[in-house]
Design a protein around this nucleic acid. Structure first.
Length: 474
RNA sequence: GUCCCCAUCGUCUAGCUCGGCCUAGGACACCAGAUUUUCAUUCUGGCGACCGGGGUUCGAAUCCCCGUGGGGACGCCA
């Protein structure tokens, strides 16, 4: 059974890069009938915040990414918060220490840094020189006396590591020119990321680790650590990173690429998911618009690209629009209504009218946040974009004539607008633009908008009459 | 600086595994036109790429080497 995990640290909001990692793990699990685990990596007490943890869970849920095990879902391998697993890590550290595979290191942070700085200066690989490994008992005592608290370092004894990466193929590392003995327990006694990850991946039976390329250089360390603790290392797959529209790393402009921001702008979760999936992956056969279901069936790691890709808001918008258009009209209206209501845009509008009119915009928008501006006229106090159409002689004539006709019309919605227009035409001089624009202006206050044929019946005869009355008085 | 990764239109990509079917396909964006008495949608057309240099081969986008460019890592962050 394939087991994968998404292991974010709750130190900020989920952004495009994070969700893509989550999504690829999820899709991989689904396509292989495996299990998807959510694990929260909150060993950095300073920066981890409970509110970010809550936000993360909420954002993942919104996306439609469901975890089989993890916070709020439970599972046989819990707890799934690293801050609740401290005792477990401690046990492994003791075993490592006893086996001589790790050691207490009395070198201070400053000294270690100095050793790396010097190496860089001499154009040698900038690694720690492991000087604490061979301190005499006397040296250690004197350092203890000076109040120096030790870290625990893992002994790197076999620096040649070969990784068979699922997306990159064979990668060779020589730890000698990368790192020295690395810290697994900080001076304050807390475990580092490396330790926690390895213990958890081992204990939780993770079979495949799909993560960002920024972790590639950590992987040899993890393989060594895992083996030292008696675990079989999982298979790894490293995803190239996503960059912003200007080619800059995503983290710097976190604000507008966070999942929360995409929610706020009114994207469909599966529209976003579809777009993200296409960043670094393709199903082939020129297929682009895919449903959640198709995504889950078609996804494969073999088709994941090795190069980094740039996020393009235009294409996201287009793709989201495509998904919007594929929605059943009732679903479109329901989702749009929710979005508008949550944003507080519906205060002065009649809900039943809004629901009736919304489907008219289905072909008009790419995101829900384009709606508030367009439906402003559903509020009875809407303003006129261009009064000229109403103030002209021809415009006035159109509105007055409309007022004569409206009370006598049959209310049946079928062909209502055509009947209205056909009855109105013979009564006025205006033609073409001069005929249609006053109607549009009186009814919607705008020169541009949705098809009148669809809008008119949704507004209804009574409301139309009210609006023409108002129009003649300007 | 050291190590690792990557490289097809402006962007996302197909093709690369098993070299000829590639005068390199699709999509977004952009430009032009058609439809819609508005806008949008839709449709048609256009612009536009195998990073450079060497090999290997009858033949290379596809294989090899070097260069260049981009990215990542080098934390008692994750």
């Amino acid at each position: 059974m394939i087991r994968v995990r998404f292991a974010p640290s709750p130190t900020g909001y989920l952004h495009l890069g994070n969700v893509r990692t989550a999504l690829f793990n999820y899709l991989f699990a689904k396509s292989q009938a495996g299990r998807f685990i959510l694990r929260v990596e909150d060993t950095d007490l300073e920066r981890s915040k409970p509110e970010f943890r809550a936000a993360l869970i909420e954002d993942l849920r919104w996306m439609g990414i469901q975890w089989d095990e993890g916070p709020e879902a439970g599972g046989a391998y819990g707890p799934y918060l690293q801050s609740e697993r401290l005792a477990i890590y401690k046990g492994y550290v003791e075993r490592l220490l006893a086996a001589g595979k790790a050691y207490a290191c009395y070198v201070t942070e400053e000294e270690a840094e100095e050793s790396k700085r010097l190496a860089r200066l001499e154009k040698r690989p900038p690694r720690f020189d492991n000087r604490g490994r061979h301190f005499t008992a006397q040296e250690i005592e004197s350092r203890k006396a000076r109040g120096i608290k030790p870290t625990i370092r893992f002994k790197v004894e076999d620096p040649q590591v070969v990784l068979h990466d699922l997306v990159r193929g064979e990668v060779h590392f020589n730890l000698d020119d990368m790192v020295g003995d690395f810290v697994i327990v900080r001076a304050d006694g807390s475990p580092t990321f490396h330790l926690a990850v390895c213990v958890d991946d081992g204990l939780m039976g993770v079979t495949h680790v799909i993560r960002g390329e920024d972790h590639l250089s950590n992987t040899p360390k993890h393989i060594l650590l895992l083996k030292a603790m008696g675990f079989t290392p999982p298979q790894y797959g490293h995803l190239a990173l996503i960059h912003g529209p200007g080619g800059e790393p995503l983290s710097k402009r976190l604000g507008d690429v966070s999942v929360r921001e995409f929610r706020r702008k009114g994207y469909l979760p599966f529209g976003l998911a579809n777009y993200i999936a296409l960043l670094g992956w393709s199903p082939g056969e020129n297929r682009e618009i895919l449903s959640w279901k198709e995504l889950q069936e078609l996804f494969s790691l073999e088709r994941v690209n090795k190069g980094p890709s740039i996020y393009d808001p235009h294409k996201l918008d287009w793709l989201n629009g495509e998904h919007l258009r594929r929605l059943a009209p009732e679903e479109f209206a329901a989702r749009a209504f929710d979005f508008l209501q949550q944003g507080g845009f519906l205060q002065t509008m009649e809900p039943s009218l809004v629901m009736k009119v919304l489907p008219v915009f289905q072909d008009n928008i790419e995101r829900f946040d384009q709606l508030p501006d367009k439906i402003g006229f559903l509020s009875e106090d809407f303003g006129y974009e261009n009064r000229g159409w109403l103030e002209s002689d021809e415009g006035r004539e159109v509105c007055r004539a409309a007022l004569e006709i409206l009370p006598e019309m049959e209310v049946a919605e079928d062909g209502l607008y055509d009947r209205f227009v056909n009855a109105l035409k013979p009564k006025v001089r205006a033609k073409g633009k001069n005929f249609f624009m006053p109607i549009r202006m009186a009814l919607t206050g705008r020169e541009h908008g949705p098809e009148m044929k669809r809008l008119f019946p949704a507004l209804g005869l009574n409301r139309a009459e009210l609006r023409f009355k108002r129009a003649v008085s300007v």
